[in-house]
């Protein structure tokens, strides 16, 4: 096959052709980035700007022309006891689940980092809760927590632990516990697999040297392994916090925010107010209360990544 090269000298004052423009890496980079940027702008940027605008208007499903109302929707939300309870719920839910996911995730990652038979199969199985669509797994949890047909309650009663089962989704504290359990179950694989990847980068020689120097397994883990995988842990923590604080599906399927709003999160309350009650602007304001927390997480993440890079 004959190799051929193309050369198109551009004379001074002559506009370059599209082909020649695309040959310039600077131009080509932006052309290739453009579809992604357009998608981001259309599906993230535009909705975000719209929600910002909605939150300072009195737009409802029934109003054709919205009026500017300043921060009324934000101050109005603060006065609502449902909103106050929802903020508390959101922080409890996020705080508790992230801590447990981290603890179990590290434990599981350490376990999966050992050599044993069917290790790869176990690692693949570990991902299942994370792979299964949330709505689907939430329905499975709904049945597990069902007031009448709960498997957990069947075991509790049949094994003689208690005369009657737990009111999983019908009592405020238990309902919160239930959604926390389901979230932890779903979130552990993300922590475990990410931390496992971090563990595999730890230099074995460092651990061996510490062992020779008389360090106990706990000391090796705490003084060597954890500091080395700290960047991974931090990033996973931040990602998980962002995902958990904006959670919706799990709670919506399991409790719809009930009983008596004891499991409402900002996402589910915003949905109820905006979609069910038709108050789009109030719903937008509620959802934007998540924004400061999320922005802190994102800035922390970016700062950390920049510091790591330098």
């Amino acid at each position: 096959m004959r190799a051929e090269t193309r050369e198109r000298p551009v004379s001074a004052g002559q506009l370059p052709t599209i082909g020649e423009l695309l040959d310039r890496q600077g131009v080509l980079a932006y052309v290739l980035l453009l579809p992604g940027l357009l998608i981001l702008a259309a599906f993230i940027g535009w909705p975000f700007v719209t929600s910002l605008w909605l939150s300072v208007t009195d737009q409802s499903v029934s109003t054709s022309v919205a009026r500017f109302v300043g921060l009324d929707n934000f101050t109005g939300a603060l006065k609502s006891q449902i909103f106050q309870q929802t903020v508390r719920n959101t922080f409890v839910y996020t705080g508790v689940t992230v801590v447990f996911k981290l603890a179990f995730g590290i434990g599981l990652a350490v376990l999966m980092n050992q050599s044993f038979r069917l290790k790869n199969l176990a690692r693949a199985a570990l991902l299942l809760p994370w792979i299964v669509p949330t709505a689907l797994s939430a329905i499975a949890w709904l049945w597990l927590f069902d007031a009448t047909f709960s498997v957990f309650n069947w075991v509790i009663v049949r094994s003689g632990i208690a005369d009657r089962g737990i009111n999983w989704l019908g009592e405020g504290a238990w309902a919160m516990t239930s959604i926390i359990i389901a979230n932890i179950w779903r979130g552990i694989p993300f922590f475990a697999i990410s931390i496992l990847a971090g563990l595999q980068t730890v230099d074995r020689e460092l651990l061996d040297a510490a062992s020779v120097d008389g360090a106990s397994p706990w000391q090796r883990f705490w003084r060597i392994t954890i500091p080395l995988i700290r960047p991974v842990i931090l990033i996973v923590l931040l990602f998980s916090t962002v995902q958990t604080i904006s959670d919706f599906q799990l709670v919506y399927v399991l409790t719809r925010g009930g009983p008596a709003n004891s499991t409402h999160l900002l996402g589910t309350l915003a949905y109820d107010v905006a979609v069910r009650a038709g108050q789009l602007s109030q719903g937008a304001a509620i959802s934007l209360y998540m924004f400061p927390v999320l922005i802190v997480c994102v800035v922390a993440l970016l700062l950390y990544m920049r510091r790591s890079a330098t």
Binding site: D146, T148, F149, N167, W168, G170
Partner: peptide
């Protein structure tokens, strides 16, 4: 019974059918 606090529109249908 307190479990009714979590019931939706189909929970009671199932419970009645199951004679609970």
């Amino acid at each position: 019974d307190p479990q009714c606090l979590s019931w939706d529109d189909s929970s009671n249908n199932r419970a009645y059918a199951a004679k609970q």
